[in-house]
Design a protein around this nucleic acid. Structure first.
Lengths: 180, 180
DNA sequence: TGTGACATGTAAGGCGTTACATGATTAA
DNA sequence: TTAATCATGTAACGCCTTACATGTCACA
């Protein structure tokens, strides 16, 4: 009855890059990796505990300030093997959940009045997103060297940008078509 | 503690187009709407019962053959209002879950050997998908009239095609870049 | 001294998947 | 007569979200 539990592999992958706390991992989902997956701290902390019991990761207590200790996790050999096996597995296509498209699907009349605001709202959101992705690209990968050093991250960011451009382009086509 | 429960709205939307059984609804997810959402019959049947209790839909027993009765559901006034309210709500961006991109993200070395098979496998899947979407387009919307009659469905299908083309194009760019 | 970020947890409950289960109908 | 499709359900369980909860640290 097992579900995929991809979050486990994301955590392993992130810890494989460098040791981190649950808090650090949580932040990854609001920036980088949030483009393709999301998770809240309330899911991450319990999973970290479970993964440590399963011997995939271990933690050290690091002193911060006077009283506070943070738990810095690192990946174990077992964890690394688990991660590699996942990487090597073939990936199926995952169907995208897009609520806007879902709504649009149900609008049968081309000249429906609701369609205009819907599309413009969505256009705005995707333009904002594209801007923020472009900003990320220029900040994280100012030159070829930086891109080659973290090639996957670079490639995935380029994908996201391409995807947003395509989305915006398609939305504009719909708007044009709508005026006819 | 309410989650979104978008499946409810999909069912309402589908029933708003025409009366259907749980079986019919289930099939929608393996074709059309499966492009943007997925659901199994084991989720659909219980939800239909709940939605009928909530007065959003009602069913009639329709005789099929000698013994079998199927439940044909239709949308109620309450259900229609619920559906319309959902349509009118602004839609936020939903982050895409794409396992391949997730894996790619973690591959730091541009010349990693694993990258080649990964990309080619994925390229194959997206090409297959694009073919099937093109087939759907030509079958469901052979001309302008048919497209205008179900505009949303048409627009969404065009989107999916555009998305797959963009994905394939990006994959090819990565492959090219990889050879350098 | 107070605000925002850092840091870590638990609880309740809905959502979604996999598996188990059964039977009728249709067309080859 | 047999296989594919039609048709409808339940059970177990893991995933994920929302909400509740607490306390420290750095900086202005």
């Amino acid at each position: 009855m097992a579900q995929k539990n991809r979050l486990k592999y994301i955590i392993l992958g992130l810890l494989n890059t460098n040791d981190q706390t649950g808090y650090d991992l949580t932040k990854s989902f609001s920036s980088d990796i949030g483009e393709f997956w999301d998770a809240k701290h309330s899911q991450i902390y319990p999973l970290l505990k479970k993964m440590e019991i399963d011997n995939l990761i271990i933690h050290k207590d690091i002193k911060v300030g006077q009283k506070l200790f943070k738990k810095q996790y690192s990946i174990t050999k077992d964890g690394y093997n688990d991660f590699l096996n996942w990487l090597k597995e073939p990936s199926e296509l995952t169907s995208n959940h897009d609520e806007f498209l879902l709504k649009l699907y149900f609008i049968r009349d081309k000249h429906s009045k609701i369609i205009n605001t819907m599309i413009n709202d969505q256009l705005f959101l995707h333009q904002k997103k594209l801007e923020s992705l472009n900003l990320q690209l220029s900040q994280k990968f100012p030159n070829k060297k930086t891109a080659n050093a973290q090639y996957g991250h670079f490639a995935v960011l380029k994908h996201a940008i391409s995807r947003e451009k395509d989305y915006i382009n398609w939305l504009n086509l719909i708007i044009e078509d709508h005026l006819l």
